[in-house]
Design a binder for these strands. Structure first.
Length: 313
DNA sequence: ATGATTTGACCCTA
DNA sequence: TAGGGTCAAATCAT
């Protein structure tokens, strides 16, 4: 069996595993939502929501990554690793190194994955390390690296607003996260845009998933929708609800459960993925255009997305 | 005090 | 050599 086939099978298994896990946790969340008072606190609704979101993000990440980078792990000739040798050496050098010659190589574009999204959030913890004005670009390009760089994770990304559609961000990812799940823990963020807030939920890693940690969900109260999202406001799930109410968004929310009808969300391909040739590879990121996500109809979702019955040829 | 962001300098590559 | 990617001191935020 070829390496390519083995990789595809591994990828499929990972996708199925993530989706099945997500469904399982969603079912737990459903139970919890129906009997919130009987929960003794061993697992919170937020924990479950966080796990679901992490599962979806992993799935989307696998789908949006190209085969080549899956196979070679993004460093097949050693030329893609930017500043890796430099960072290793810099740990030994306490002061600023003036001579940075040979410190890094310009990365190649062959192992990049592009996405276009109304939010910069993607479920990972990033640290900004630079910003540049780009020629003929109206908006600066921001450079991020994984928060866990010094633990060995080489993932980086570049984010830039799209000139033609400034509410959208084009994100280019380089390398893959090698930081483990124990390093990652999503935080729920509702996008700053009032409408997107209802439809797009993203999260970023800050604390270990498996740690017994106080609630760290966050919400962006709709403010200036044009501002770049900041992620420093902590609140719990009740805060999210009250925030929505405070921001008058609750008036726009239509309960999802409507009599006996199965209500499946309507997905809008706002976010697209591209390979390094700018060819659209999969419409893997969708935002829900329905304003009816206030109450989850898990039965409907189960029918709408029978994950465990997915078969691959 | 600690961690994140800003920003100018430095360096590499097309 | 210009443009783009990264570093790291200074600054800001918590």
């Amino acid at each position: 069996m070829s390496i390519l086939n083995e990789t595809l099978i591994t990828k499929r298994k990972r996708l199925i595993g993530e989706l099945v896990e997500g469904k399982k946790i969603a079912a737990q969340l459903q139970t919890l939502l129906h009997k919130p008072l009987k929960n003794n606190g061993s697992v919170s609704a937020e924990d479950l929501a966080v796990k679901i979101l992490r599962s979806f993000t992993e799935t989307l990440f696998v789908l949006s990554s190209n085969e080549t980078s899956q196979i070679y792990g993004g460093d097949r000739d050693g030329g893609d690793t930017v500043a890796s040798a430099c960072s290793e050496e810099s740990e030994k050098k306490p002061a600023r190194v003036k001579d940075r010659r040979g410190c890094y190589k310009r990365r190649r574009t062959s192992d990049s994955r592009k996405t276009v999204s109304p939010t910069m959030e993607d479920g990972y913890a990033w640290r900004k390390y630079g910003q540049k004005n780009i020629l003929n670009s109206e908006y600066p390009r921001c450079y991020y690296r994984c928060t866990h760089k010094y633990e060995g994770c080489k993932a980086t990304k570049q984010v830039q607003r799209i000139k033609e559609d400034p509410i959208l961000y084009q994100t280019t990812y380089f390398d893959h996260h090698t930081c483990t799940d124990t390093m990652r823990a999503p935080q729920i963020i509702l996008d700053s845009d009032p409408v997107e807030s209802l439809n797009l939920v993203s999260f970023e890693s800050k604390i270990p998933l498996n740690q017994d940690h106080p609630s760290r969900s966050m919400i962006k109260i709709p403010s200036s929708a044009k501002e770049e999202p900041k992620q420093d406001t902590q609140s719990d799930m009740s805060d999210i609800k009250s925030s929505l109410e405070d921001s008058n968004l609750s008036q726009e929310i239509v309960p999802m459960k409507q009599k006996s009808s199965v209500c499946a969300p309507v997905w809008d391909p706002k976010t697209r993925s591209y390979d390094h040739h700018d060819q659209e590879v999969v419409s893997s990121f969708y935002s829900c255009t329905s304003n009816s996500m206030h109450e989850l109809d898990m039965e409907g979702i189960n029918q709408w997305c029978d994950i465990e019955n997915i078969h691959f040829d």
